[in-house]
Write a protein that binds this DNA or RNA. Structure first.
Lengths: 303, 303
DNA sequence: ACGCATTTTTGTCTAGGACAAAAAATCCAG
DNA sequence: CTGGATTTTTTGTCCTAGACAAAAATGCGT
């Protein structure tokens, strides 16, 4: 691994920390302090980049940069997850045995074995339980495992990719929706995680809703146009933990304004746990709430 | 559509133009000139944001910002695609009838009809022809259609999402690879387009290669780790037209250094057409070249 | 018409200052 | 002690404006 160094742009790409933040931290906390090239531009050694990545992930878990940067490198890996997790239901100690087996397959890089195990679980439990009791908690576990170093980033990527495939395949086998309600599924430009969206789609499609999957990263104005064009009843967005919670209220407000008033706006995912919903926005902290809301929508619009 | 205005961050999100560039254009060309809020911060009216999006797309086609900004708004939509397209083979006038039908389905927002038509084409032609003669050119057409306003962004997203599903489904039905070569498929952090990757995967898997799909946006160091962990023979990356060609040489060089020397690095997609490959990097401008390279690899490593 | 050198275009980097919003800490009333 | 309101600290983003290098376009000589 003979890499010479990262430019500030490369570090932004690889860590997700903006150039502004990187320069600010340097000024304020004295870390990271990169070397400089012949033109006085920052060159970050690999070690600093890796430390920044650990710090970024812990920040997504709720830690604050000031503390993390003061903490010595070795101690960082020992920090436990803190908060902002989806559905950590009190007293709901789930049986971990099923997950550890799956996690082990990932750690052995056994893609085929992993897919096979997932498909088996799906066949055994049915789609709804599969999503709620396997995929959702497993996604959680994978996130946790990453942060204490039990899983590499590329193993997490493999997990995501393979799980998406199994979910999509399952969705494809479902009969077509009843045409009502029409739910537009997507995410905003800075949110690239698809898994949450697929889980919701699976559950809603299972209940016979008509899902219109637009993938991730839709510009706000386009979401609005799409809602009109597809005559959507509901726009559903997913936000992951990693989403900058700073921007959330503004974005949702802006979208709510852009959207026709008779279109409902539903949001969910670990990213909205710390968010207090404003008028005209429905906010879900568990998948189950989404399914319930669908039932409620149906009885309201029965006429 | 009652949106008040965009902050500079929102414009960066929605257009893909960096804050630095937005401020520089304002200084240099006198466009865009946003209003200011009470704190002196930029507030971009919707009209300017939309014009910026048109400009950005045309830039991806090879136009230069100086000219585009000088061009009056009405004239922008008339500009034709210029260059940097994948496989526009001279004298190879393809029969467009099949595509226009599919494009019409998209324009009517008929998701089910579109998927059905794709699946029919797949069944009729077989996976290889489907990918090379339907999906690849259709992706092209969709891009073209966007730029002359024949297709909305959300229609393009719907296309992408549905096509991905059909491709993945087709891949899932293939028998498992022969275990050699082992090809790691992914993209670098700023590249989020999956479609090219899936097309390659379909073709390689069809030839019996063992594909390890890691999704998009892998940090460079992680690509290197993944290659080692999966004992990959080849790392294959895809770059779309939208990828900042400025960064391409540096990124590939850096990755090449990080990768074990016995792992081959293959790159392809519309984004690499303007790129002259350096040592240790194989660069493909058509899907077919990839399949040929696979055959060549096999005969080289026959022993 | 083709290859090489020069000029223009364009994006990214740098610096430090200012400020607002979120989180934590403090204080005060019950 | 406990809940809630207020102050303080922390943290990220925005601002201006200058410098420079790499890419693209142009001009020039053969």
């Amino acid at each position: 691994m003979n890499t010479l160094g990262f430019t500030i742009a490369a570090v932004e790409r690889d860590t997700g920390l903006s150039k502004d933040v990187l320069r600010m931290w340097e000024r304020r906390y004295g870390f990271p302090v990169p070397e400089r090239d012949a033109h006085g531009e920052r060159v970050y050694p690999v070690a600093q980049v890796e430390r920044l990545r650990v710090i970024k992930r812990l920040m997504d878990q709720g830690y604050r940069p000031g503390k993390l940067i003061a903490t010595p490198v070795e101690a960082l890996s020992l920090l436990a997850p803190r908060r902002g997790r989806l559905a950590p239901e009190a007293g709901n100690e789930v049986d971990n045995s099923g997950y550890t087996e799956l996690l082990d397959l990932l750690r052995q890089h056994d893609a085929n074995g992993f897919v096979h195990a997932l498909q088996q679980a799906l066949a055994r439990q049915g789609l709804q339980h599969f999503v709620q009791d396997i995929v959702a908690p497993l996604t959680q576990q994978v996130g946790d495992a990453w942060e204490d170093g039990r899983l590499e980033v590329f193993e997490e990527h493999l997990f995501t990719e393979l799980t998406k495939r199994v979910l999509r395949q399952a969705i494809a086998t479902l009969p077509q929706g009843s045409g009502s309600p029409r739910v537009l599924l997507t995410s905003v430009p800075d949110e690239q995680h698809m898994l949450g969206l697929l889980m919701v789609e699976a559950l809603l499609a299972l209940e016979g809703a008509e899902c219109i999957p637009l993938g991730t990263q839709m510009p706000l104005l386009e979401i609005s146009r799409a809602a009109t064009a597809h005559r959507a009843d509901i726009v559903a967005l997913s936000f992951s933990v990693a989403f900058p919670s700073r921007q959330l209220p503004k974005i949702l407000e802006q979208l709510r304004r852009a959207l026709p008033t008779d279109v409902e706006l539903w949001v969910g995912g670990s990213g909205v746990l710390r968010f207090t919903p404003s008028a005209g926005i429905r906010c879900f902290s568990t998948l189950e709430q989404g399914v319930e809301a669908l039932a409620a929508w149906r009885s309201e619009h029965a006429g």
